[in-house]
Design a protein around this nucleic acid. Structure first.
Lengths: 144, 144
DNA sequence: CTACATGCAAATGCTTTGCAACCTA
DNA sequence: TAGGTTGCAAAGCATTTGCATGTAG
């Protein structure tokens, strides 16, 4: 996590943001790296990652954490949703009914052939909620 | 991808499934590895991964691909959903309104303090739909 | 000047894979 | 006995980090 104070406007940061806004797609860090390198041949991948992190925290861009490599296994093969604790990564079932018609809602609006969907909630589990509150200085602080 | 034919019932496969069903949580491959190793001290992590893959394809269990380390970046910081092509990984916006009240629906049903949610669709993009159809032997095959 | 940023390279963490030996049907 | 399966180790890959150097404010 960064501190986000006394940020500086570097060429690298500026150009990364520009390249991301120029083409309105959803590139990976590595793709952004390739684009930016055309203008700044000496930039490194690490710098790209660090700046994307900062720009995300500033709210200038959005970081999509797509369903990817972080795998968990569920004894229950039936469709259901989950909630994951952002602090300790604990996963539990989210007691909410499957959105059976949501794919139909999208059907007419996209050129994709829809295969499925996944809904994931994030939150703080009871244990981490407690620790979170204990850590805070002012008594009745609340999350934004 | 496996062929899933002529599968054999090995001790490893059986015990992995048992351990997953014994405790109805959502363990990582590594956690499953630890549990199983208590009963089969010589089992390897690779075997665990291979069997989890097979059991998933058999529909015995479910593999959760949680939002994790695989990142993409979006020039638009506002809340919206995405659809990802399972074949080429292309990501596009899913033109569907944000589910503003879904977190409220969950609120009373979970002990987690909810922070947010993410909805992701999977599908085939136009390019891959075409290739997919070209690849199939019978003319008008359709997806299940 | 000085604290933030960068380039480079090494390290991480999780997952996959090649291969010879091993077992199940 | 054949071919699926295993253990082991090495390889992959995206992402993170340590450090000396560079630079914006």
């Amino acid at each position: 996590m960064q501190k986000l104070r006394n940020l500086r406007t570097t060429q690298q940061r500026t150009i990364i943001l520009e390249e991301l806004r120029n083409r309105k797609d959803h590139p990976s860090a590595d793709e952004i790296f390739s684009r930016v390198r055309k203008r700044l041949p000496r930039i490194s991948l690490g710098t790209v990652y660090r700046n994307l992190e900062i720009l995300t925290q500033l709210g200038e861009i959005q970081e999509l954490k797509l369903s990817g490599s972080l795998k968990r296994y569920d004894w229950n093969p039936n469709k259901h949703y989950h909630i994951r604790c952002v602090n300790c990564d604990r996963v539990e079932n989210a007691p909410i009914a499957p959105l059976n018609q949501i794919e139909d809602d999208l059907y007419q609006a996209t050129v994709f052939e829809i295969i499925g969907h996944n809904l994931e909630f994030t939150g703080l589990c009871p244990d981490c909620t407690q620790k979170d509150q204990e850590t805070r200085q002012p008594p009745r602080a609340s999350r934004p």
